[in-house]
Simulated scan of single mutants.
Amino acid sequence: MVKHLNPLYRKAIALGTGVVVAASLLACSAPNAASSPSSATSAPAPATPAPKTRKVTNAEHELVFHVVDGKLPALVLDAGGGLGSSYWKDMAPRLAKATGSKVVTYDRAGEGESDEISGPWRVENAVSDLEAGLRELGLTKNVVLVSHSIAGEVATNFVHKNPGWVSGAVLVDANVPDFFTDEMLTAFEPVIEKQRAALLTQASTKKNRQLLAVMVDYAPVHRVFHQLTWPKDVPVTAIVASGTPFADSPEAAKMWRDAQVRFAQGPNRKHVLAENTTHEGIVTERPEIIAGAVDDVLKTIR
């Protein structure tokens, strides 16, 4: 039985929404040492193309996608709950330059510049929105998902619903089915209800509305998620932050780490521990680990 989970309770919503915030560099070229004093310095490396914004309508709401042009496979970066495409503002150009791939970031419904929608948050709706955007961009194959926190749920459901679209994935301290056992969900239920009641007393904000939407039917929704498995034919790397979302609860942190290890077992799966990182800051704290994992996946599928 799970005991002493008050710290876990304080973090419960962070897991479901990814509200715990979790997102590099263009080098100048140096002068050519072999050149004569009169020769010009070497030309700078080509600049990464500026992202282009595309607006996509799905189910009567508008979604905003940003695309850096490049070759396939395309990298689709999906941030945690409460976060928009700006989460990847440093990572996206780094990956575009390092890989030459097309890089896509976007705002899920209710986040960033995309429209809000009423009703509870449902992963099926998030998957439908991503499908609509990728179809509009002509990306129905050769896609690599890079998914943080709650976007792990979107990724897992997406690969099941759309076989053949996704060639590989990198999960960045992401929600994986193995974590959401009955034991954990039973522990979550009372705190979710308590925090839901507290949020209802506060001013309505975009962030609060997203939190409330995720809380609806939290346990039954995640019991369904717990039943999913990652397809064996899609390579996936699970990067785990050493800090985990439960920095103040060693017991819960161990459960999170153990679930990530279980998830990574089997063919076409890798587990990477990102030392000296937090759940919310891993993208800026150790961007080279994410870039390396993406490069490994690309080498596997190209």
Rank of each mutant, 00 (worst) to 15 (best):
A219M: 09
A219K: 14
W230D: 11
V224N: 12
M215D: 13
T244R: 02
T229H: 11
D217S: 10
D233E: 09
V234E: 01
F225W: 00
V234F: 03
D217K: 15
A219S: 14
A213R: 09
V224E: 14
T229W: 12
L228C: 06
A219C: 10
V236C: 03
I239R: 04
D233N: 10
V240W: 00
R223I: 06
Q227N: 12
V221Y: 11
D217A: 14
S242E: 11
A219V: 11
L228E: 15
D233M: 02
D217T: 13
V234H: 03
G243Y: 04
K232C: 04
P235C: 02
K232Q: 14
W230H: 04
Y218R: 13
V214Q: 07
V234G: 01
P245H: 10
V240N: 05
M215E: 10
V236R: 08
P235A: 00
W230L: 06
H222S: 08
A247T: 14
F225V: 15
T244C: 02
A241E: 02
V216E: 15
I239V: 08
S242G: 05
R223Q: 14
W230S: 06
A213T: 05
Q227R: 14
H226L: 12
F246I: 09
V221K: 12
V236Q: 01
A241N: 01
P235T: 03
A241Y: 00
P235K: 00
H222Y: 13
P245K: 08
I239G: 05
D217G: 10
P231K: 00
A238M: 13
F246T: 06
V224S: 12
R223V: 04
